[in-house]
């Protein structure tokens, strides 16, 4: 009687890939970049708080005092929703498989007795854990530093919970979209940057239905803070702004994530990776 070794399930295999990839991802050079991206708002928050504690006069706009919760809302928009989340999604998401191709190590992964889709899923989970563990603590620290300046912790707690939830969702959705681009396209980083810095802002600024084909439209609809109106782009966006309902935003973002991941696993299973010698 011979004992047959069965291939592990997709879930088990994904968790194994996650376990291996998380450490690699966390201690890579990319994390230094991520640290800078999320460290800047923390540094700014610390400076603002220090100035406040030293008795510096607070900011005023149109004779109205700018309080901690307002500054926090502004930072969430400018640093996190509009920059950190999409940019980290592009850099990490597109590299999930592309890095293995560039390093010519993808062959080793494919020789393992695991479904190919599990490689993408495991790496995607590692990306999610890695970015969430860096971005969300940064938001919490900024909140603790900034909100007590003329505001109350109790009063802005609900907004913090919403912010953490929407940022985690944003990282998940952008990650899935760019994981799909990373597995299916040849120059994923360029395509990703074009999507984030050209397509999304343009579609969001134009009147009509084009914005429905962006992640930002649904993600920005969940932000509990007023959109800052300092730039021309914000002004244009505010003119044509129509916010989708909470439920619609959540369902659409969940669909984008699921479809993105499904297409990514499908692409890796179908695609022939020819490694350059």
């Amino acid at each position: 009687m011979t004992s047959e070794r069965r291939a592990p399930s997709t879930l088990f295999a994904s968790l194994r890939v996650f376990d291996i990839s998380l450490g690699e991802m966390l201690w890579s050079r990319r994390t230094v970049f991520m640290g800078l991206v999320v460290g800047l708002p923390v540094l700014l928050a610390a400076i603002v708080r220090l100035l406040h504690e030293l008795g510096a006069p607070g900011m005023r706009v149109n004779n109205a005092a700018v309080t901690g919760p307002v500054i926090f809302g502004l930072m969430i928009w400018v640093f996190f929703v509009r920059f950190s989340v999409p940019v980290l999604g592009v850099f990490y998401g597109t590299s999930l498989i592309a890095d293995e191709v560039d390093d010519k190590t993808i062959t080793y992964l494919f020789t393992r007795p695991i479904p190919r889709g599990a490689v993408v899923l495991g790496k995607y989970l590692a990306y999610l854990a890695c970015t969430i563990c860096v971005v969300l603590p940064s938001v919490v620290i900024v909140w603790l530093l900034i909100v007590p300046i003329g505001g109350s912790i109790a009063g802005s707690f609900v907004d913090l919970v919403k912010d953490l939830g929407l940022l985690a969702l944003g990282l998940a959705v952008y990650g899935a979209v760019f994981a799909m681009i990373g597995t299916a396209m040849k120059r994923p980083l360029l395509v990703g940057l074009a999507l984030v810095f050209v397509w999304e802002p343009t579609a969001m600024a134009l009147p009509g239905y084009l914005k429905l084909y962006t992640v930002a439209y649904y993600l920005q609809g969940l932000v509990p803070h007023a959109m800052p109106g300092e730039s021309t782009m914000s002004l244009i966006q505010s003119i044509f702004r129509e916010t989708p309902s909470f439920l619609r935003s959540i369902i659409t973002l969940a669909l984008i994530e699921v479809i993105g991941l499904w297409l990514a696993t499908r692409a890796i299973e179908k695609r022939e990776y020819v490694l350059e010698q």
């Binding site: 003329g150 802005s156 907004d159």
Partner: peptide, 14 residues
């Protein structure tokens, strides 16, 4: 919380 949120926004410098 609802009331304190607005208080936080209006009280500084007023």
């Amino acid at each position: 919380a609802d009331l304190m949120k607005l208080v936080g926004e209006v009280q500084a410098g007023s």
